[in-house]
Design a protein around this nucleic acid. Structure first.
Length: 843
RNA sequence: GCCCCUGUGGUGGAAUUGGUAGACGCGCUCGACUCAAAAUCGAGUAUCGAAAGAUGUGCCCGUUCGAGUCGGGCCAGGGGCACCA
């Protein structure tokens, strides 16, 4: 070890090859070691690895390497979430084939990942766009269909009336199609659905057992599933035969009702529209705009009075106008609500707009006037007023009373409603898993027989016109009906890519050719011990994967109910932005075009000053991106990995900075010099108790921090140990400390650690070395510093032997000169002693 | 509009989960080494103050002997909202 500098350009590739050659990261299904399945969310192959991926995979890598060092058989696989819209956009823009584009992206990104030295089992690599993967997915889909968990129904999509195509929410900008600019409409199509609502209860219940998930994710899922209890009841309609079913969570406010509203696609609205052009016109206006909740809920609340009158269930003389309203959702409850404006903001806004009465029925204190004034609805607690037999009751008592009477009188019953809707999986797009069904004029919808799987996507497609190329492919969709042998057509919709990512973690664990997975092998690895990914997946992906696992459990294909035992959601990588006004428009510049100094930034090309903007998520449009390849070229993989782990706690955003990566590079070099000082022959041979203590505290501390995924804290402890080693005189302890710090940093800086281990280790690869063991006797300090406070204010600190009694501590505190000066003769009324921590004197 | 999160020095953050706020890193200042620079090493670095001391964890209020930590109310920034992945 004579080289004064660590040279990653040479070392990185050498050790990456050594790991590959020795196949150290390939997981064995047959090992008798304890197993550990570490998984990071697999990337979409967009073209280049993003710095956010590097952060995500570095975290998983440290854990995987640590687990291996602590004696586990580790499964740490990688694959590609390879279906999706960007490939089709590339096809339209660049004239390339989505498959070719995707596969070349995968090749590029794989090379990028390899350069970072991740301890991945590449023998299990998979891409969801391979028929070997999606064919099994089709089989699973058919199994779920056979179990009654798949069905078809009408559902709304964003329709671009100019391009005559379905748009993703992302493609709708300010209510207009992103290419055509046409006003988007909601249009109904017959689509495939998975019955996730069948599992609403158990998905909710299951959250309770996910102790190693972040609370916020569990809370978000709980709210998303949205269990609510209420009353479903029937309004009679004056002069009409049938009634109208509504659902409410606030039956207590029934005497405050001033209108009833139905969704524009409610059967009654549809029926009225057929005979009344004014209604038909209103129903049409309700179709304007996209399908997102944010859009629907923020658009102006509009209603149309149908002229029909609903009869109040407790008083036939009260007639409530029936409106069609654009904010009522057909998908939730019964698609009909009654409005109580005094106690619901949306209903109040609506009532003020259409001049409907607003009656107070819940009073907070003395405010019992039935005429409700103001523009802010009251939704807080209180007692019922102006509500006949409910007057004086609490909200809960009134709810129970109304439900009891409705049930006794037979016009309603207590009902549980869920916010969760069934999962629509149909996509009118090419680059996805073909849905394995055939439409036959005689036999209806027929599943593709399993022996005919996979239903393979045709390669010869064109993207010259908008819309799904499968629909206009000359031959692909024309098939024989498997049942009657007659002419039939394939389903041309493909599956939502969330289906692909709902079971990939099972396929990683077991990938036989003839079936989706082998349950016995999968059971050895699952559930995933630690799953790591972005918080943006807190609801959809994670809920769908939980559902899919439970669905497979219900059809007895798998033995677990929850796929991910522990979940960690990491923050984004951010960077400041650089911009300059050019002709009244903000023009952004990339970090590589900028010369940054402590007091500002100028353009490299002409020295013109630019404004340094906020630190935000890296994005192409703001040009505040850093390419992982460039920085690996410049600093080597270890410095980049170190940066990803230092400073910012992993769940928070990490601001990228040039100064920061420079600092990491310097530490890598410092660690290298430290390793070079290992020299047992020169050591005096004596031991250094203080350093031993520091070393063992570091071993225990770093291990605990890695297990808690607190990498920033683990790194702070390694810095601490490095500082202590540098200050220490040569000794056997110091050599031991050097060996230890190399082992402790091996999961983070594996290339440097291997290079150093080649000299100071015991022959093998450090990737396969054992984590150092801890001497518990060395973990404790025998002295502590205690704080002495007067009424909570720090007045002095005392360094004393550990474990002194309360009385001894109190006496020492009172003996302090500073304390006596601060007391200034005041009487001490109470003394609070926390052993080994503090003494607080209350005066 | 609805759901969720975050806020601590110049800066990223730490704080044994209610007990000495600012560990560790970056930056900066001074010094050593050098012809010089880089690298490296050493010392210092919350604010005000000469000091004693006072103030200080987005803002306001509360609970407590004691609050960055707990409760209530705001403000600001971010994530998600079912066809982006």
């Amino acid at each position: 070890m004579t080289d004064p500098r660590f040279n990653p350009m040479a070392a990185d590739a050498r050790w990456q090859k050594a790991w590959d050659d020795a196949r150290v990261f390939e997981a064995s299904d047959d090992s008798d070691k304890p197993r550990s399945y570490v998984l990071e969310m697999f990337p979409y192959p967009s073209g280049r690895i993003h710095i956010g991926h590097v952060r995500n995979y570095t975290m998983g890598d440290v854990l995987a390497r640590y687990k291996r060092m602590t004696g586990h058989e580790v499964l740490h696989p990688m694959g590609w979430d390879a279906f999706g819209m960007p490939a089709e956009n590339a096809a339209m823009e660049k004239g390339v084939h989505p498959g070719g584009w995707t596969r070349s992206n995968i090749a590029n990104m794989k090379a990028q990942l390899k350069r970072l030295g991740f301890a991945l089992d590449w023998s299990r690599e998979l891409a969801t766009c391979d028929p070997e993967y999606y064919g099994h997915e089709q089989a699973l889909f058919l199994d779920l269909y056979a179990a009654g968990l798949v069905y078809r129904k009408e559902s709304a999509v964003n329709w671009d009336p100019v391009d005559m195509t379905v748009l993703a929410n992302e493609q709708v900008i300010d209510g207009k199609g992103w290419r055509s600019g046409a006003e988007v409409e909601r249009r109904k199509l017959s689509q495939w659905f998975l019955k996730i609502t069948d599992f609403a209860d158990e998905l909710l219940e299951g959250l309770g057992g996910l102790d190693n998930w972040p609370d916020k994710v569990r809370l978000m899922q709980q709210n998303w599933i949205g269990k609510s209890q209420g009353l479903q009841f029937r309004f009679a309609i004056e002069g009409e035969k049938g009634g109208l079913d509504v659902f409410t969570t606030r039956p207590d406010t029934i005497f405050g009702a001033s209108f009833v509203a139905i969704a524009a696609d409610h059967p009654i609205a549809q029926q009225l529209a057929a005979n009344d052009s004014a209604v038909a016109a209103f129903v049409e206006t309700c179709k304007k705009g996209g399908t997102t909740a944010a859009e629907i809920e923020t658009q102006e609340k509009l209603g149309h009075d149908t002229g029909l009158r609903c009869v109040h269930p407790f008083d036939e003389s009260i007639a409530l106008p029936l409106y069609i309203a654009n904010f009522v959702l057909m998908d939730y409850g019964t698609g009909a609500v009654f409005g109580c404006p005094a106690h619901d903001q949306r209903d109040l806004d609506f009532s003020r707009k259409y001049d409907l009465p607003v009656t107070r029925v819940v009073a907070d204190g003395d405010l019992t006037d039935p005429v409700f004034v103001g523009d802010e609805a009251y939704s807080g607690p209180g007692a019922l007023v102006n509500s006949r037999f409910l007057d004086g009751m609490t909200i809960d008592a009134a709810k129970a009373e109304v439900i009891a009477r409705a049930e006794a009188e037979g016009w309603g019953q207590a009902t549980t409603t869920w916010r969760l809707r069934d999962w629509g999986v149909s996509r009118q797009r090419y680059w996805g898993t073909p849905i394995p069904f055939i439409h036959c004029g005689t036999c209806g919808v027929v599943p593709v027989p399993k022996e005919q799987l996979p239903v393979v996507l045709p390669e010869d497609v064109d993207f010259k016109t908008p819309g799904n190329p499968l629909l206009r492919h000359p031959t692909w969709k024309h098939v024989q009906c498997p049942k009657c042998g007659g002419k039939a057509e394939r389903e041309t919709d493909t599956l939502d890519t969330f289906v692909d990512s709902s079971w990939y973690f099972i396929r990683f664990a077991s990938q036989p050719a003839d079936k989706p997975f082998d349950p016995a092998v999968a059971a050895k690895w699952l559930p995933v011990e630690q799953y790591i990914g972005g918080v943006e997946h807190a609801i959809l992906h994670l809920l769908y994967a939980r559902f899919w696992t439970r669905a497979l459990a219900r059809i007895e294909m798998i033995d677990i109910k929850e796929p991910f035992a522990s979940l960690f959601t990491q923050g984004m990588v951010t960077h400041e932005t650089y911009a300059r006004m050019v002709e009244g428009r903000e023009v952004y510049f990339g970090p590589d075009e900028i010369e940054r100094s402590s007091d500002g930034a100028v353009l490299r090309s002409d020295g013109a000053p630019v404004t340094i903007g906020r630190v935000i998520k890296m994005s192409k449009s703001k040009k505040n991106v850093v390419d992982p390849d460039d920085i690996v070229d410049q600093y080597g993989a270890d410095a980049v990995r170190w940066f990803m782990l230092s400073d910012s706690p992993p769940e928070r955003d990490l601001p990228w900075s040039e100064a920061g990566i420079e600092g990491c590079w310097r530490f890598v070099q410092r660690l290298w010099r430290l390793a070079g000082q290992y020299n047992p022959e020169q050591a005096s041979g004596g031991s250094d108790k203080a350093l031993d203590r520091k070393t063992h505290q570091a071993i225990a501390g770093v291990a605990a921090d890695i297990e808690a995924l607190s990498f920033n804290k683990a790194i702070a402890k390694i810095y601490d140990l490095a500082n202590a080693i540098e200050k220490a005189a040569p000794s056997a302890s110091r050599d031991a400390a050097i060996r230890t710090i190399v082992l402790l940093s091996a999961p983070m800086t594996p290339h440097l650690a291997e290079e150093a281990w080649a000299t100071i280790g015991d022959g093998g690869l450090i990737a396969q070395a054992a984590w150092p063991s801890v001497d518990p006797a060395l973990l404790m300090d025998d002295e502590v510093t205690i704080a002495v406070q007067i009424k909570g204010k720090l007045r002095d600190t005392l360094t004393v032997a550990k474990g002194l009694s309360r009385d001894e501590l109190e006496a020492l505190a009172l003996g302090s000169e500073k304390v006596q000066r601060a007391l200034d003769g005041a009487e001490v009324k109470k003394v609070i002693v926390v052993p080994d921590r503090l003494v607080n004197l209350v005066i």
